[in-house]
């Protein structure tokens, strides 16, 4: 029995998810990811040498994922796809990030969001009728499709102006209306008396 318990405790759903890589359409690598991140240069540290606003390529993916998540739009990946070199478990770790701060806790919320928005039979997995890997794949697909929507949105802006996101406020301006939409009518017990601000205005 002791051996059995040990095997089960090691078999964590989160760890299985975190070991996975996420995917993006190959055509977005040059048009979006390399425009915004120091992706593919071989360096893991934040590098502004090319005027990139972000470090690793997955950072663009994370932002794109949240855009899709909040917009509530999944866009299936088309054509050739590619995985990032770093599995989810390394996202936002502090090491070798220069003046940046680590954000490992963000992974927990991405996980929670992926679970919330993935349509899978958890009981079947729990019973062992469906393998866990199938469920994890479904979660990754959810993430990829949300991110794909966000990446295409970024692509549209970059096609208009390749320096669109070089300003401090451009990326945040994509999020502000989404935040507003998500928080509309949302009243949390602890913040019910909080923000009385009118609709957010995009920052100049």
């Amino acid at each position: 029995m002791a051996t059995e318990r040990k095997r089960v405790s090691k078999d964590q759903i989160y760890d299985n998810w975190a070991k996975r890589n996420v995917h993006f359409e190959v055509e977005l690598e040059e048009s979006v990811i390399r425009q915004l991140a120091d992706y593919g240069s071989g360096a893991t540290r934040y590098n502004a040498a090319r005027g990139c606003i972000l470090g690793a390529g997955y950072e663009v993916y994370i932002l794109a994922f949240f855009i899709g998540l909040y917009a509530g739009v999944r866009r299936p990946l088309e054509g050739e796809t590619k995985a990032f070199g770093q599995p989810v478990q390394y996202w936002g770790n502090l090491e070798s990030r220069g003046e940046r701060s680590g954000y490992p806790r963000l992974r927990e919320y991405i996980f929670a969001a992926a679970v919330a928005r993935t349509d899978f039979d958890l009981l079947a997995i729990e019973r062992g009728d469906t393998p866990l890997s199938k469920g994890i794949s479904a979660m990754i697909l959810t993430m990829d499709e949300y991110a794909n929507y966000g990446l295409h949105l970024m692509k549209d802006y970059l096609e208009e102006d390749r320096h669109y996101f070089s300003g401090n406020t451009a990326m945040l301006n994509l999020f502000l209306p989404l935040f507003e939409k998500m928080n509309a009518g949302y009243v949390h017990d602890d913040v019910a008396d909080g923000d009385d601000d009118p609709d957010p205005e995009p920052l100049d």
Partner: peptide, 12 residues
């Protein structure tokens, strides 16, 4: 948005 997890502004 990443380092300060501002991206969670709509997560609730």
């Amino acid at each position: 948005l990443l380092d300060d997890m501002f991206v969670l502004g709509g997560i609730m």
